[in-house]
């Protein structure tokens, strides 16, 4: 479903962010992407989201290729990809429910569909009672749950999570991680970027790809690269 083949990305001022990256993420798979900050985790997520194009190599996502995807197709592809960030990126003037609804509105969904879906997603992430709260009235963990719900509005094939627990305490981290596991259990693939090695160790048995200075140094699916 997602395949990176010999992918390198160089930035004019910062040099190589990643080089010669090869891996595949299958449908319904859960995979940690680890490494210290600056190792290239976010770059890989941006490449999969087609927000960046590789300098070399090819990124293939759900039938689209980075080498020939058109702008209109990028929009369509993104509806199949959920994205969750460390800093939540919620609209501060909108309520929890409105933040989720916004993601549906901009893809042209009908009001009736939006209402039903938002209600369902809020209860899935355990925040049905807080639908009318503004982000500033919610805890960090709750804000991230809203962001996760937003990532799920279009029933994505994969959710990309960029340090989603980076701003959360131990308990909230565990809660969010469990949420991702339950999303994965319904068949949605998850690519979970984190530098929290403790979290990774606690869930041995899940696939781990480790990055160092822009290179894959370990992939549990294919052992040491």
């Amino acid at each position: 479903m997602i395949r990176l083949s010999k992918v390198s990305k160089q930035y004019p001022r910062h040099g190589a962010a990643i080089s010669d990256i090869n891996f595949e993420l299958r449908k319904g798979e859960f995979c940690f992407l680890t490494g210290h900050s600056g190792a290239g985790k976010s770059t890989i997520l941006k490449l999969i989201h087609m927000a960046e194009r590789p300098t070399e190599g090819e990124v293939r996502v759900s039938g689209y290729s980075s080498s020939n995807i058109k702008p209109a197709e990028v929009s369509m592809l993104r509806r199949k990809i959920g994205y969750v960030f460390q800093d939540f990126r919620l609209l501060q003037q909108r309520t929890a429910a409105e933040n989720i609804a916004f993601a549906l509105e901009v893809t042209g969904a009908r009001p009736a569909v939006i209402r039903t879906k938002v209600g369902k997603l809020l209860s899935n992430v355990g925040l049905a009672s807080k639908s009318e709260k503004l982000p500033s009235e919610l805890s960090g963990g709750e804000q991230q749950r809203i962001a996760v719900a937003r990532a799920l509005v279009n029933d994505p094939l994969v959710v990309l999570a960029d340090e989603p627990t980076g701003n959360l305490d131990e308990r909230a981290t565990q809660g969010i991680f469990e949420l991702f596991r339950s999303i994965n259990a319904t068949g949605t693939a998850v690519l979970f970027a984190t530098h929290d090695l403790e979290l990774v160790r606690r869930h041995a048995g899940l696939r781990v790809i480790e990055l160092d200075h822009g290179n894959i140094v370990y992939d549990s699916a294919g052992a040491i690269v």
């Binding site: 990809i81 994205y83 990126r89 609209l91 501060q92 916004f102 901009v106 893809t107 042209g108």
Partner: peptide, 17 residues
């Protein structure tokens, strides 16, 4: 700005933005 970023994130078309 923030709304536009999120619109693009969730796959709004350029025309829609």
């Amino acid at each position: 700005r923030d709304e536009i970023t999120i619109m693009r994130l969730v796959g709004a078309t350029d025309a829609f933005v």
